[in-house]
Amino acid sequence: MASSSSSSSTQVKKITLKAADGKHFEVEEPVAMEMETVKSFFVGNEDAMKDMVVPLLNVSSEHMPAILDFYRNHSEFRKRTPPPPAEEVKAFNEAFLENKSDEQLMEMIMAANFLNTKELLNFLTEAAANRIKNKSVEYVRAFFGIENDFTPEEEARIRAENEWAFDGLDED
């Protein structure tokens, strides 16, 4: 059980989300509604909001706290007047990615895709692109978890056909 140990002074409606591994997360309604997948659950059935648990089959509980943190902060950024300085948003985004492994980043992209939230998905795909650009083929393979199924001859031939694409790689 995830703890929502708030002695809630304000009366914000909460929605319970259930991660793939069964763990429950109580989330403030506006934050939950940032996710189109959750929102569509209640369309035409607003009464259900009170006691329904929304199953998120493709999202591991490992990533839920970070994902919810992203929604909370970014929706606050959007609402704030005047808008927050760019450095503040940048600092949050950088801290968000700081300790995420490539594998975690990929899993979160899949989660964002399932939750159908453009803002988070765009942010994470951009982070992925930044991590792999100008990196060696071996690095990118490891990043995506791809197994090379070319023979050395085939690979050499394809590289030769696209020669100009392979100059100046990072050493990693």
């Binding site: 795909t125 100008n134 990118v140 690979e155």
Partner: peptide, 27 residues
């Protein structure tokens, strides 16, 4: 797990030169 449109989107975010390099990753 990753849908193709997400892969294409990641490729688009890079300089096209780096996108083309992905041709040797695998078949």
């Amino acid at each position: 797990y990753l849908p193709y449109y997400i892969i294409y989107h990641i490729l688009y975010l890079m300089d096209t030169k780096y996108a083309v390099r992905t041709c040797v990753l695998s078949k």
